[in-house]
Design a protein around this nucleic acid. Structure first.
Length: 278
DNA sequence: AGACAAGCCTGTACGC
DNA sequence: TGCGTACAGGCTTGTC
């Protein structure tokens, strides 16, 4: 499930492979992948446009177009963007949108669970981010997230650390996997109440957010057992081999060897080391 | 065979 | 009262 590091890896791929290309064809065969606007409006907004950049905000990909609008993509659970150099290659099952580009390559959107979506946003805020995404919080990579800022965001919150990290209104880009890894790196339980965090805890949390995400981006994201996440060229990520706790219940904590446990927090699976985290 | 996983939205209930 | 939080349900399909 693509989170910030996976989406950032796709963004880097888009910047290298499709920025500067012009859209010459738009096919929308999926029923749900384009749902914020009509398929006709989506096609009209893209046809003839040139990709002018590749940005990311949280888990949203933003591709500015040469007319000032922005192509927005969210992969949700199972979405994948694939750059296919040879359009004669067969389309895999669940290919819902295909953009034909002026170098004869194709950008394909594949999404078995159809939670993901594409749309073109014309109304932008002063930061160039579509106004419909104005509710997104701080992006730790784009904006940085020093401990002082994290402390401000935590101020007054009365919830679990897990729920806080997953709430895109405060920090944008963290999902279930990286929430668990960040908690472990910070030595804090995912079930820890935010109102009990000390200044030292917040310092370690800020360092963990930055450190875990940076390392995961460096290794081009995490591909899980289903190998659903792949980068734009179809390659697997490398961070899954470095997971300390996520999806490792019963296996030894890499720091201390104690068995990793799994519980439910904020309605989600949460993995943690009972010895290293408090 | 059916529970489960995921992200995000919506609706509703509850507590300070 | 009102706000923030909690929880459940919906959407979907591949996997165990």
């Amino acid at each position: 499930m693509p989170e910030l590091p996976e989406v950032e890896t796709v963004r880097l791929g888009l910047a290298a492979a499709v920025v500067g290309r012009r859209v010459e064809g738009v096919e929308v065969t999926g029923v749900r992948s384009v749902r914020r606007q009509s398929k006709a409006a989506f096609k009209k907004a893209l046809l003839g446009r040139t990709f002018a950049g590749a940005l990311r905000r949280g888990k949203y990909l933003l591709v500015p177009l040469d007319d000032g609008a922005v192509l927005v993509a969210h992969l949700r659970m199972s979405g994948q963007l694939v750059h296919v150099v040879d359009p004669a290659l067969p389309r895999v099952l669940h290919t819902h949108v295909v953009l034909g580009l002026d170098d004869a390559s194709e950008l394909r959107f594949v999404d078995p669970r159809t939670f993901g979506e594409l749309f073109v946003a014309a109304e932008l805020g002063p930061d160039g981010v579509p106004v419909v995404l104005a509710g997104l919080g701080t992006d730790p990579l784009v904006d940085g997230l020093p401990a002082a800022r994290l402390g401000e965001l935590l101020h007054g919150r009365r919830t679990t650390l897990k729920a806080f990290l997953l709430d895109q209104r405060f920090v944008a880009g963290i999902g279930n996997l990286y929430a668990d890894e960040i908690c472990h790196a910070a030595g804090l339980l995912p079930s820890r109440r935010t109102e009990t965090l000390t200044a030292g805890d917040v310092e370690r949390l800020a360092a963990a957010v930055a450190g875990v995400l940076a390392e995961a981006v460096r290794l081009r994201g995490s591909s899980l057992r289903d190998a659903r996440y792949r980068d734009l060229a179809g390659a697997l990520g490398g961070y899954q081999a470095h997971h300390a706790v996520y999806d490792r219940a019963g296996e030894p904590c890499p720091s201390c060897g104690v068995a990793v446990e799994r519980i439910r927090v904020a309605g989600r699976s949460a993995h943690f080391c009972p010895a290293c985290q408090s």
